[in-house]
C-alpha cells in the first residue's frame, strides 16, 4: 500500500540522499518534449492572419444565420439584437488590423477582402430585424464576406 504522508516526503527527499529515478526523468522529459513540439512545429499553428481571417469569416457566417433565423421566427428579435452586439465587438477594427498581421497576403487581396468587409459590417452594425427592410441583401453581403474571409484563412 502506498503510504505517503507530509512527514515522510520531507524525510526522504533531502538533497544529500536524493537520486532521481528514471520515472522522475520521465515526468520532467515528457512535458518538455510536449513544450518543444508546441513551440517549434511549423504546421502546429496558423499564421496570425489566417487566424483572424478565419474568425472573421466564422462571425459573419454566424451573423447571417442569426439574421435568417430572426426572420424565419427561429429566434426572437431581442435574441438576435443581443447576438449582433457580440458579433460587433468580435469584428470591430478587423479592417485596421488585417494587413498588419503576420502572414498577410498582398495588398490587392487585402483590398478585395475589405471591399466585402464594409457592407457586411454595415449589416452587423445595423441589422434589419424588421420585415420592412432589405434583410435578404444583408444576408447575401454577410455570406459573401464570410466565404471570402474563410477562403483567405485556409
Amino acid at each position: 500500500m502506498i503510504q505517503i504522508t507530509g512527514l515522510s516526503v520531507v524525510q526522504t527527499t533531502t538533497p544529500q540522499h536524493h537520486k532521481p529515478s528514471r520515472y522522475t526523468h520521465l515526468v520532467v522529459l515528457l512535458p518538455l518534449c510536449a513544450l518543444l513540439l508546441i513551440t517549434t512545429g511549423c504546421q502546429f499553428k496558423q499564421s496570425a492572419f489566417a487566424l483572424m481571417a478565419g474568425n472573421t469569416g466564422s462571425s459573419f457566417a454566424a451573423a447571417a444565420m442569426t439574421l435568417d433565423y430572426a426572420h424565419k421566427g427561429s429566434v426572437t428579435a431581442t435574441y438576435a439584437r443581443s447576438a449582433f452586439q457580440s458579433y460587433q465587438s468580435q469584428l470591430q477594427n478587423v479592417d485596421q488590423q488585417l494587413s498588419a498581421r503576420a502572414g498577410a497576403p498582398d495588398n490587392r487581396t487585402i483590398q478585395e477582402l475589405l471591399k466585402l468587409y464594409q457592407p457586411a459590417m454595415q449589416a452587423i452594425n445595423h441589422p434589419c430585424l424588421e420585415a420592412a427592410c432589405h434583410w435578404q441583401a444583408q444576408i447575401t453581403a454577410l455570406n459573401q464576406a464570410s466565404q471570402a474571409f474563410l477562403k483567405a484563412g485556409e
Binding site: A62, T66, Y69, S74, T76, A83
Partner: peptide
C-alpha cells in the same frame, strides 16, 4: 456552416435549429 462558436449566442443557435424561438429561450 463554418461557425466556430466564438460567442455564447452562436451556441444558442444549436437549440434554435430544432426548437425555434422556444429553443433559443431555453438556451438563455
Amino acid at each position: 456552416q463554418n461557425i466556430q462558436a466564438s460567442t455564447l449566442g452562436e451556441i444558442g443557435l444549436t437549440l434554435a435549429t430544432p426548437f425555434g424561438k422556444i429553443g433559443s429561450l431555453i438556451f438563455a
